[in-house]
Amino acid sequence: MGKRAHGQTLGVAVMSAIESEGVVLGGLPEAQLPAAPLRPRRAVVRGAAHRIAGVVFIVCLLVFMIGPIAWLALRAFSGLWQYPQLYPKDWTLSGWRQVFNDPNLRHSMRLSFEFAPIVTAASTVICLPAAYAFSRYRFPGRRFLLISLFATNAFPKIGLYISMAGVFYSLNLMGTFLGVVIVQLIGTVVFMTWIPAAAFSAIPRSLEEAARDVGAGPLRVFFRVTFPLAAPAILVAMILSFLASFDEAQGTFLVGVPNYITMPTEMYTLVLNYPEQVAAVFSILLAIPSVVLMAFARKHVMGGRLAEGFQLR
């Protein structure tokens, strides 16, 4: 659930950029220059007090951000570990064996890896044209639709399951592969439209027009000019979709029973019910794809690529 909300927020953020671009960039053509970080300035951390405060802040941040994950990772390999020992006294891989020998868990892991990319692809295919339309055409109700795409997602899902179940049954989607794809797709729509829409808006029309002037057809213009320029933002949106789909638990359970039960659903059971080790092992396994994604995407998500989506026309 959580990751989806982050996606929404990002999408909204981009949208705000659509609307606020004037104030950020107003009268500042230099803003289009890549915003490289400044040279280090010794003045920033002048004085020992400052430096100590900085170090304390950084240490606290490290413990706060990484501590829980590291502590959990230790658990995955620990045997008996009683309070108040600082680290486990004996080490074991039994938790790992237990996870890999459970056919249900293996199956749900495979399912998760199947659904997430498919949902991402489907969402991209459905939403990109819409994103393009939102950025290029001023049709009546445009802003209303954009905002309601987000607003409907702000309704707590738990209040909707019964009516959602009714809809899925009426359309014969319950328990089907397609049904699960749809229920996960719902959570990805917002940022798959908003982030690319912002990116498309960032591309000057003059570029497209120039391409058309030299005789390129509209499709060719889109794929040779518009799409490559918007690709970084689209990639970010796709990564967020992937994570949202990967993280979806209860909606998937609602629609997917009995054949499609994915990892996050199993995770609830594990976390609350199993020996701590097994839960820790499973957590690590679940985190692996995300970490791989992060290694791959960090440069784009962090390195100003997202910010690029903000610099709009």
Binding site: I158, Y161, I162, M164, A165, G166, F168, Y169, S170, M174, Q250, G251, F253, L254, V257, P258, I261, T265, Y268, T269, L272, N273
Partner: peptide, 24 residues
């Protein structure tokens, strides 16, 4: 299909209720 105490009971109840109602 196992669910830790109650976590998936809401979706399950929703599902069963809607299904039986529509005779599915």
């Amino acid at each position: 299909i196992f669910s830790e105490h109650g976590v998936n009971d809401t979706p399950t109840l929703a599902r069963i209720g809607a299904a039986v109602k529509q005779r599915k």
